[in-house]
Simulated assay, not measured.
Amino acid sequence: MQATTLTRQSITGSRFDACVVVNKRLSVEFPKAFDGYNVIGDTCTSSGESQLDVPGYPFRPKFQVSSSTPSVQAALDQTKDSENIDVCVKEKSSQYLNRKDVQEALHAQLVGVTRWTGCNSVVNYDMLNLEIPTVNIVGSLVSSGIRVLVYSGDQDSMIPFIGSRILVDGLAKELGLNATVPYTTWVEDKQFGGWTQVYGDILTFATIRGAGHLAPLTSPKRSLALFAVFLSGKSLPEALPN
């Protein structure tokens, strides 16, 4: 209830003074290079942006990041060493989707705008729809006999995995599902991949170690392993006992 109230206040611009003070304080204390969607990730130095930027996100501090004219070569050169992850994917995706040959191949037409962007003012969404819960949709799928996997990157501060775990656990209790696999670790290539719990062999929750909000982008190898195991209908490999 409190989270819903705060969301509504943020969207309508009627937040409590205390919330405004905290938000401003966060804007001062957080470094400009901090990516809330991947707290251990780098940002693209040619644009100073997160891998995923959502303008107007209700509780995101208004970081003042200076943006210079992007250098394509600088964007191409900047990658993360661990899994060769490109931290400038947003910038380069925008450049790619604004190419005339790409737009023609996709039969895409620019209507009301001069170039493609991730977000624009042409399509307006009712932000109050953020208050509408979707966990019941997951419940209806499970009740229909459809296997469901809910996963979270453990480095995502925007939608923390703890909240996702609480929602899934509450849904399982509501549906009368018992834990068939207790909360335990899973491994990938003999390395700790994350945590998982399974309810009734039909509802699975899992975290992906080292992944941010965009798990397949920030931890592609573990994300693929998790997805492949789920599609196969098998259980995630557990860590070997000490």
Rank of each mutant, 00 (worst) to 15 (best):
V187D: 05
T134K: 07
F63L: 15
T184S: 15
S67T: 15
N129E: 09
S71G: 14
V65A: 14
G176N: 04
G194V: 01
V65D: 08
S14W: 11
A3Y: 12
N23F: 09
I132M: 00
G13T: 08
P237F: 01
Q103A: 09
P182W: 04
E83W: 07
V102K: 09
A215T: 15
Q64M: 11
K92Y: 00
G176S: 02
A3R: 14
S47A: 01
K234H: 01
R165E: 12
E131K: 02
K24D: 15
L240H: 06
L236S: 00
V65Q: 13
N120F: 10
A74K: 10
K62V: 13
R165L: 15
A33F: 15
D81V: 07
A239L: 12
P216V: 08
V181Y: 00
P31S: 10
G13Q: 09
V168S: 10
T69F: 10
S140I: 01
Q197E: 14
T79M: 08
T184D: 10
S14N: 13
K100S: 14
V187T: 07
K62I: 14
V113H: 11
I159S: 07
G170D: 13
G13H: 11
A74P: 07
G200I: 05
R209Q: 14
I146N: 09
S94Y: 02
D126W: 05
A206P: 08
T114N: 15
S143R: 06
K62M: 10
T185R: 15
G210Q: 07
T180H: 00
V142F: 02
D35Q: 03
S223W: 01
A179D: 03
C19M: 12
F16M: 14
L175V: 08
S14I: 15
N178D: 08
E49C: 12
L97T: 01
E174W: 07
S66L: 12
T114L: 11
L6H: 07
N84T: 04
G212D: 03
E91I: 00
A206F: 13
V87K: 01
G118H: 05
L217R: 04
G194M: 04
P160E: 02
V198S: 00
I202W: 05
K190D: 09
D35W: 02
L52E: 02
A105R: 12
V89T: 03
V20N: 15
N242C: 07
S232H: 06
P160W: 01
D189Y: 00
V187W: 05
Y183M: 12
T45S: 13
V72D: 08
E104K: 15
R222L: 06
L76Y: 11
A211R: 03
V168H: 10
F34T: 06
C119K: 12
A105P: 07
G48W: 06
R8S: 06
K190A: 06
S232F: 02
D17R: 15
Y125Q: 05
K24F: 11
T5S: 12
D35I: 01
G112L: 13
K173H: 14
Q2A: 05
L97Q: 04
G153P: 03
V54M: 04
S68Q: 10
E29N: 13
K234M: 03
E29W: 08
R8V: 05
H213D: 04
Q78A: 06
D86E: 09
T184N: 10
D86C: 10
R115D: 14
K173T: 09
A215V: 13
G210Y: 07
E131D: 05
S82D: 08
P220M: 08
K92S: 04
S143W: 00
V89D: 01
K234R: 03
V72M: 11
E91A: 04
A105F: 13
